[in-house]
Design a protein around this nucleic acid. Sequence first.
DNA 1: GGGTATTTGTCCGTATGTATT
DNA 2: AAATACATACGGACAAATACC
Lengths: 291, 291
Amino acid sequence: MPDPMYKRVAEDLRGKIESAQIAPGSQLPTELELMEEYGEKFGDASGRASTISRNTVRDAIKLLVTRGLVVTRPGKGTFVVRKIDPFMSTLSGSPEVGRETVRYMSEVERYASEVEESGRKPDVTVPRVEVQRASSRVASHLGLAEGTMVISRYQQRSIDETPWSLQTTFYPMEFVTQGATRLLIAENITDGIIKYVEDILGVRQVGLHDLITARVADSHEIAFFDLPEEGQVAVFEVSRVGFDEHGQPLRLTVTVYPADRNYLAYDEGKVPPNVAALGVPALGLSDRSPR
Amino acid sequence: MPDPMYKRVAEDLRGKIESAQIAPGSQLPTELELMEEYGEKFGDASGRASTISRNTVRDAIKLLVTRGLVVTRPGKGTFVVRKIDPFMSTLSGSPEVGRETVRYMSEVERYASEVEESGRKPDVTVPRVEVQRASSRVASHLGLAEGTMVISRYQQRSIDETPWSLQTTFYPMEFVTQGATRLLIAENITDGIIKYVEDILGVRQVGLHDLITARVADSHEIAFFDLPEEGQVAVFEVSRVGFDEHGQPLRLTVTVYPADRNYLAYDEGKVPPNVAALGVPALGLSDRSPR
DNA sequence: GGGTATTTGTCCGTATGTATT
DNA sequence: AAATACATACGGACAAATACC
C-alpha cells in the first residue's frame, strides 16, 4: 500500500469521473455513502461493517476540488464539473496593422464576427469609462510617468449568455485634451476607437506588442466568470500595446480569458484558411511527456 | 467576524508574506507556534493560555499551499516560495517565414541567443528520438490518419541550471523514407531541422499556426520543473504547426512552459525594438478589475 | 412561514506514521 | 537514538445551507 487512503479514494473517484461513470454535472455519492463504499473497498480485511472516516473522505474530495474535477455545494452535495465548450480567439492578423488599404473593424466587431462565425451568440457590455492615475504597470507600457492621468474603458464579453472575457483599455489623457472627446463617452464607437483616434488626431496604429501571462483567477474574476472558489482555474492575461509610426505607444489593452473556456491562436506567414476549424482534440499525455 | 478561523489565519499569514514580513524562502513558524500565536490573536476574549487547534492551523496552511504561496516539507517546516525571475519568449518573427532571403536559425539557436541576450545561461538536452503512432491530436494537426507513424523529438530546456520548458516536435515518418534520415539521429542539427528538411526534400516552411492553452501541470511536469505537488502551478502549452507552400503541415511542435517563470510575446507590424526590455511590472488589481 | 431531515463546513481532540536533523 | 515537524487517520460536536413537507 504505497499511497495513503485519501489519495487512493481520490484516484478511484477520478477514474470514475474521467471514464464518465459519474457523468458531468451529476452528483457524487454523499460523504456518508462514500464512507461506507470505501470502507468495504479498502477496509481492513477483517470483515464487514467497516467504514472509513468522514474526514478521510473529505480529504479525498478536497483533492478533487483543487484539481478542478468537482465542486461542493453546502446542503446539496458534490458535483462533477461540466466542461465548457471552448472558444478560440485568433489574436494575430489584426486588420489595422501591416496594410496600406485598410478595412477598419473595431475589436468589438472583430470579436463579434469571429464568435458568430462559429455559430454562437456574442455579447459585449457598454464600456465603463473612468479617468484614473496610471499604475506603474500602465505607465510603463504607455511610456508615461506613473500617476499620469489616463482613460480606462472596461468591458465584459459573453458567449451564449456565459461570461467569457474581461477587457480594459487605457489611453493617454492627452488624446482627450487634443480633441478626441468621444473617448470619455460610455458607449461603443462603431468603427473602432483606433480609427476614431486616427481620424481626429492623425495618430495611426502600425504595430502591436502582445504579452501573455497565466495566473490563477482573483476574487473579482471568480465572481464574474462563476469559477469554483477553490478550483484554481487559470486565466490568460494578454497585454496588448499599440504603437504609432514613431514607435510611440498609443493604447494598452488588458484582456483576461479564463483558460477553461478559451484558447488563443496566432498565425504568421502563409497559413491555410481552415486551420482554426480543426478545433482542439483531447490532449494525450504521451504527446508531451515521454516516460 | 464573518470569516471562519482558518481563513482569518490564512489571510493574516498571506498579508505577512506579501508584505515581505516573512521573506521569500524563509520558514514560517511551526504549526505548534502558530497554534499559540493565533490562539492569543484570535482566541476567545476570556483570557490567557488559549490556543487554536492544530488542524485549524493546518487548514490555513493548506489554503496557502493551494494558492502557491508556501510549500511544506515534512520534518523541516513550511517555507515561503521564492518567486522565479521570469523569462519572456518572443514567439513571433520566426526567421524562417515571411522572408525571401533567409538567415536560417534553428529553434534551439534562437532560444539560446534570446536567453543569452538577457545575460542568462541557456541549456538544451540532446533530443530523445522515438518513432510512434500518431495520437488523434498529433494526427489531426499534421493532417494524417490516426495511428500513422511519426517521428517525435523531445528536449528539455533550462536557464541558469533551472528547468524551464519541455518541447516535443513531431514529423511525418514519410520524411525519413524520402531521405531525411538525420531526423532519426539523437543529436541537435546545427542549422535547424526546418532548413535540413528544405535542403533534402525541398519542403519549405512558409507559415505557422500557434495554438495556446493553459492548464495545470501534470505529474511528469511537476517532477521535471520541481513544482509544488499541490501548488497547482499553471503551464502554457503552445502547439505550433508549420506549413509548406501548399498548405500542407510539415511539423507539430508542442512546448510546455510553467507560467510561474515564463511569459510569451508576439509582435505584429512595426514595433519599437526595445519593447521586450520593459519587462513585466507587478500587476495592479485595479488594472483589470474595477469594483 | 415554520420545522425537520439531509448534506457539507468548521473546529476540536487524539494517536500514530514518516521525514529530517 | 532522540527530538522536531509535518502527514495521515480517526473520532465527535455543532453550524450553515438547502430541500421538502
